[in-house]
Nucleic acid binder design. Sequence first.
DNA 1: ACGGATTTCGCAATCGCTTGCGTCCGCTGC
DNA 2: GCAGCGGACGCAAGCGATTGCGAAATCCGT
Lengths: 354, 354
Amino acid sequence: MTVADEEDGKPKRQSLQLRRATIKDVARAAGVSQSTAARALSGEGYVAEAVQQRVRAAADDLGYVRHAMASSLRRQSSRSIGVLVSDLRNAFYADLAAGVGRRAREHGYTMVLVDDRGSVDEEREALAVFVAMRVAGVILTPLSAAAVDYLTRQRTPFVEADRTFSGGASDAVVIDNVEASRRMADHLISLGHRRIALFIDETDWTTGADRFRGYQESLAQSALEVDESLIIPSGWDAGGSRRAAVDALSRRDRPTAIFAANNVIAEGVWRGIQDLGLRVPDDVSLVAFDDAPWMSMVTPGVTAVAQDTVALGAAAMDRMLERIREPEAAPQTLVLPAEMLPRGSTLAPLSLRR
Amino acid sequence: MTVADEEDGKPKRQSLQLRRATIKDVARAAGVSQSTAARALSGEGYVAEAVQQRVRAAADDLGYVRHAMASSLRRQSSRSIGVLVSDLRNAFYADLAAGVGRRAREHGYTMVLVDDRGSVDEEREALAVFVAMRVAGVILTPLSAAAVDYLTRQRTPFVEADRTFSGGASDAVVIDNVEASRRMADHLISLGHRRIALFIDETDWTTGADRFRGYQESLAQSALEVDESLIIPSGWDAGGSRRAAVDALSRRDRPTAIFAANNVIAEGVWRGIQDLGLRVPDDVSLVAFDDAPWMSMVTPGVTAVAQDTVALGAAAMDRMLERIREPEAAPQTLVLPAEMLPRGSTLAPLSLRR
DNA sequence: ACGGATTTCGCAATCGCTTGCGTCCGCTGC
DNA sequence: GCAGCGGACGCAAGCGATTGCGAAATCCGT
């Protein structure tokens, strides 16, 4: 009797279809026009209740899934955001991505993730891919100013996370590196340390620069000179800082305390200390930037600055959502606090102990 | 003199454009038809050398970036692959994703990554998103048989990684869990352990089931009974297994050795052991499935089964590429070997030492 | 019973790109 | 001198969805 009945004879065999169902198929199956089908499925515009039901039924009968790209194309808007980090194997970046991805999903966005392995070329390529995909925005831990230039020129909204190259000219979410670093150094100084080595991989990015600055400011405040030989370039992997640690700790005038500027460096330094058979904190004190699981598992635990990296990612995504909502708003740099976790890896220097 | 000259007067201001350049704009700028522009940019079909150059010049003059979605739509093919893992904060999954992402990129594919936090609902949603995006394929660490059913019904190629629900009916890349587990148990038995606790979170997936089986087989081979009270459900997070470890090790007849079925469990067990002030391996031996950085940093190091997780991800992507190339080929399950890393966390049980 | 307001739904254009097909042109071979 | 051929390029049709507009149907008040 009803129009829908004409479907009755044949069993529904969505799984046997060769071609994926389109909205046109749904429309035909429901006996309505393509536009009505679209309206029924999206819920926008006037559609009679009965028709809506009929269309919806036809849709999942056919296993119809809206073609997101066609939709994006037509609506000129995308629900995916590009995320670019330096190294997914590094827990810091993985957590960051996890934070972004989860928050994104809560808001109906999907994360397209690339890890550039620290290569500026790969960074550039990745950004081009994002632009090609017309992502709604990009969240990145930039490697170079070229990255922000490119995105700016391409008019693709972006948020820098963890470090920034834009000097406040674009959105960014970072932590208070200067402050956290200063407090760490203060702590060591207050214990009586004077020869505090800073193991650091770079001072060109805001992260490294700020952590270095915090260290300097702390020393300055205590009227201590910065000894250049104690600023130790650690290289980019744990192996490098391990070797550097072995070197530095083998020197006659070895440091009494070490400040590792991130988790990778800390790992290397820790291993280097083990290699030499030194004991923490008796022979050398150790503090680290970033918290990593192992820092609370080794004995003694390593005193560290903990960033809530997942929250950092989520905050970056929040900023992104704001940016999308208000494209013309003034850029904001969000500075999150970092927490200091005292554990057992520091002690007064040997010379001050009896 | 040449046609190109007519561009000379005006300075190029790609950055001042309000609308993003389309291929039509490029065509107009180069003085050719849209189709010629397309051919020039893609390199397909006949295009005169000079024209090609002119078009390319116009393109990057305008900052043109091909609209990947429009292109995908027209060509009915996509260059992105969906990756679904359980928890990006877990190094295992992060590494897996890193492996997939890198291999994907080498082949011009982009990774769309979702982490479902172990929720079957989120898993389902994520897969729907992938289908909506018409990804070329999906690589996943499935949570449920529903996942593989859905993808099968949607005719979306997929590769299961780490565990499989399809019993060989689809592509999968796993490691040899039974064998690795058996060797671990063998090792403990050969040291003289008889009360070996297996801390495990699930035995429903192939990972858990196989690890359990390896353990059983090993005991059986030594004519030992499996004591049900030593198969300890650890819960899904480190906190849970920490508590479980404290419990188990407080029992009068406590196990002399513990086999932790994955890195998260191992972390919890380790912390639990510390909580009780017990020493490894003197008071209890510990071995783990999965290798994690901390296992080689604590003292003593934890004897573990190491999987090359990044390689696992890469292998899954390789399988995916094969599948895309040959959609009708028979499904393959790739079994990668795992390596055993003996460190210092095992010793004969106290009763056998003098 | 009638006019206007409101609801419902179809037509067709459009998003940006690719590509089959047709046309035009210059060159070659006989 | 002309048929034939292949290179170069433009026209226009889609890919699958959304949506402005208009027509038709329905409702409501008087």
